[in-house]
Design a protein around this nucleic acid. Structure first.
Lengths: 225, 225
DNA sequence: TATTGTGAACGCGTTCACAGCA
DNA sequence: TGCTGTGAACGCGTTCACAATA
């Protein structure tokens, strides 16, 4: 029984949240989670129920779950169960940054990758100067080495931070290099062949979602009165 | 008849795409859009159908749509109809950037806001040095002026780019200032009161979605064989 | 023939209500 | 009593199949 995508997203956030407050008392209830996240408690219980089902299905004779005391969930155990079920702990997927301008270079010192199942292993920029000046924990290369490096080191994903005019062209090159997925920080809409996935990340889209949700909430409240 | 949220998101992207290729021939078919975006053509037709319904519902005696020739949709007309229906062209919503480190300061020269319905009107940082050194088209302030500036100028949204340890505290302050929505670029999970909306933007989450989609596609292909 | 347009069926995640348990 | 857990009903977006239009 596969975990539904929206459920997986909530669980992933929940795991982050639990790890953040690791210092607190060992147990948390679904209604406390509701308070922290805004998700209804029954949704959370259902999500965790899906999680347990998914674990039980694959755990043929292995150790059973065992979060769920009488007063909530064991935070540490729940968090690690989520991580395991969502395929974290598996081998790290290698990623690269393409485009080391202001935005791209911000990732060079971004701490969020530690503890995730993704690993930054390369950066590329067409400007050789940048490549030489910037410092990172992983090697930076001029753009013409992209194909060689990606294929040799087995990089699966690219984080695209080039100027919008170069976005589609660079995406095409990345596909040629054998990349599987692109996280697109560019405002451009990318066209890619079947089998390649693009995830768009955009402040503007995020602001649009906010506006839509606030508008929906308003009309909802109106209809409640 | 309100436009469903997923539909609105697709239409929003579609509008961006149409505007990008404004130079091309004036008409585009649903199957061409399928090729460019990967969405099935019937989904696109349904989406545009929803759009037409939404416009027709509010256009009491006003001009009717009129994209839809016999060989596709008029690109320019469709794009502007989408923008109108999704509430763009309305008064701009004011936004501010909070935290002017590497990531936050990248937005100071980000072009994506032009032509959107959002406008950057202020930046804040607790480090007075940064505020004085950085240059932007809009004023930058030290953090202690947040409340005064946000309330005086009517800023509705904040883009949160502070270090993760300060995320929750800063979010709390923003809520006190009367902000309605927060775009959270921090890996921290934020708790906010009812009525305030948070949209999380995270590379890690985006990579996670990519992985999930690729995995789903693989098992789907397997079951098709 | 090549397109849009749409009512109806479907599938899936959400919600509900209540059973189970400590 | 206060919590988790879950089958069943519900609602909504997607998908399908076919009518409509040129």
């Amino acid at each position: 029984m596969p975990i539904p995508k929206p459920t997986a997203e909530r669980l992933s956030q929940l795991a982050r949240l639990l790890e953040q407050r690791a210092a607190r008392s060992g147990t948390i209830s679904s209604s406390e989670i509701q308070q922290l996240t805004g998700w209804p408690s029954h949704t959370i219980r259902k999500d965790i129920s899906s999680l347990a089902a998914a674990i039980g299905a694959s755990a043929n004779g292995a150790a059973e779950p065992d979060f769920s005391t009488t007063s909530g969930y064991d935070q540490a155990k729940l968090a690690s169960a989520i991580r395991k079920a969502l395929g974290f702990t598996n081998e790290q997927r290698k990623c690269c940054i393409v485009g080391l301008g202001r935005l791209g270079s911000a990732f060079l010192e971004y701490a969020g990758f530690q503890g995730s199942s993704f690993e930054l292993t390369a950066g590329f920029d067409s400007n050789v100067n940048r490549v030489e000046i910037l410092k990172a924990d992983f090697p930076l290369y001029p753009a013409f080495k992209m194909k060689e490096v990606i294929q040799r080191t087995g990089i699966a994903y690219a984080v695209l931070c080039v100027p919008p005019q170069q976005a589609q062209g660079t995406a095409d090159r990345l596909v040629e290099c054998g990349i599987l997925g692109i996280v697109n920080f560019t405002p451009a809409i990318l066209s890619v062949p079947h089998g390649i996935e693009v995830e768009n990340v955009s402040v503007i889209d995020a602001l649009g979602s906010l506006t839509a949700r606030l508008a929906a909430k308003k009309t909802h409240e109106r209809s409640e009165q």
